[in-house]
């Protein structure tokens, strides 16, 4: 991801800043400008605290790699890694890695909390892109 694209998403990647519709109480992550439920255009900022549960998951054994080797993609170095769809307490779902646990500890329905990790490093010269991953609540 280019630096400007990443920078624009920093509030979401670092702090899970989404939106809430004050009319119908729907929550959105990533943020949206129009409420998909009621059509309201005036949504308010909402910070998700990152608690949620695993809806489904997989173990990625063939990662996305940069074909030219210009990107030191952390995903490529961590295979196998656990990828999940997490449902946040407020309702929205997102896709993220589950870290710091054994593969067989991960189960559908398990509680997780967000942590701050490196996602992608653009080579030894490039920018480091940080963002959310999740950890099992123990």
């Amino acid at each position: 991801m280019t630096v400007s694209k990443f920078w624009r998403n920093i509030p979401q990647y670092y702090n899970l800043i989404g939106k809430k519709c004050p009319e119908c109480n729907s929550y959105y992550f990533p943020p949206r400008d129009v409420c998909s439920q009621c059509g309201n255009h005036k949504l308010e900022e909402h910070k998700f605290d990152g608690r949620g549960e695993i809806v489904t998951f997989t173990i990625i054994r063939t990662p996305l790699m940069d074909p030219e080797g210009e990107v030191i993609d952390i995903h490529a170095q961590t295979i196998p890694y656990i990828l999940a769809i997490v449902k946040l307490e407020e309702g929205p779902k997102l896709t993220a890695e589950i870290v710091d646990c054994e593969i067989d500890e991960v189960k559908i329905g398990k509680e997780v909390g967000a942590v701050f990790r490196k996602i992608v490093e653009k080579g030894p010269h490039g920018v480091i892109q940080y963002g959310y991953k999740f950890k099992l609540v123990r």
Binding site: K5, P30, F57, I60, L64, L83, T95, G131
Partner: peptide, 16 residues
């Protein structure tokens, strides 16, 4: 921005 960046691949999505 919301799937591939976080490590999703196509087999990964269908696997889920």
């Amino acid at each position: 921005e919301w799937e591939a960046f976080f490590g999703a691949t196509f087999p990964g999505l269908y696997a889920m």
